[in-house]
């Protein structure tokens, strides 16, 4: 099938104000991201459309929306040449503030519950000497760089449907800290993730690992925690 270049893209946006315009024809340019679509709508068609972004290079993690149902960063999601229409909705499972902006408070509530900060072990007065190819770092390094964008939360069938669940992001953070030899709160954290709203509530949907814009694997972190909980640690 020949690729036909579209002159405009039809964008359907979930709006929270009754009666607000929901469908926009946006003239396309190359290259174009979903964020560019939204900016064009705001600049040229509807000043009142509400969405969030900051860095526009996939580092701040604030522009997450659902693009055709799938959570993604607006700034790093291209509008491919053959795309005719795009549907944009706010993230799932979080209260909508306005249009595409959600209140991340439930996400952070879960995050806070795993004691997300390092509890330094006694005597950690200077940067620890840890070899980069050590077992510990090989476990941790692929799970760093979380930008707390919430895409995994939105994409998790359990978190997003409002069930009590620590959720993929917080559990990944917990896994990183449990594996970190500099940390002194391993046992508390393993207890926290072992409760009924912890790792056992994961239903193996893999929505988290499938959408993570940074390529992290929260599902893998959850499996690791499941094993460690029984063995007392890595």
């Amino acid at each position: 099938m020949a690729e036909v270049e579209q002159a405009t893209v039809s964008v359907r946006v979930a709006r929270s104000d009754a009666g607000a315009e929901t469908t926009f024809e946006v003239e396309r340019f190359e290259p174009m991201t979903v964020l560019d679509l939204l900016l064009a709508i705001q600049r040229e068609q509807d000043l009142s459309i509400a969405f969030r972004f900051s860095c526009r290079v996939g580092m701040c993690g604030t522009c997450t929306v659902r693009v055709d149902g799938r959570a993604a960063l607006a700034c790093t999601t291209p509008v491919e040449r053959d795309v005719r229409d795009v549907r944009l909705e706010p993230m799932a499972g979080l209260p909508v503030v306005r249009d595409l902006i959600v209140d991340m408070a439930p996400f952070w509530d879960e995050w806070a519950r795993v004691t997300p900060y390092l509890v330094p072990r006694a005597g950690l007065d200077e940067p620890a000497v840890i070899e980069p190819d050590s077992e510990e770092r090989r476990r941790i390094d692929p799970s760093l760089d979380c930008i707390t964008c919430g895409a995994c939360y939105s994409s998790c069938g359990v978190s997003a449907s409002g069930r009590d669940f620590l959720g993929p992001a917080a559990l990944t953070r917990a896994m990183v800290l449990v594996a970190d030899s500099r940390d002194a709160a391993r046992d508390e954290r393993l207890r926290a993730v072992g409760q009924s709203d912890g790792v056992d509530r994961c239903r193996y949907i893999y929505g988290c690992s499938a959408v993570c814009p940074k390529g992290l694997d929260p599902a893998g972190a959850i499996r690791a925690l499941r094993r460690w909980r029984l063995g007392g640690g890595p």
Binding site: A128, V129, I130, E131, P132, D133
Partner: peptide, 22 residues
Amino acid sequence: VISELETVAGCFFDRRPDGRIF
């Protein structure tokens, strides 16, 4: 500040093969 980011805040910067900060 580097030392504080590592020991208080919990950052971990890239290491040399011997385990010290690269």
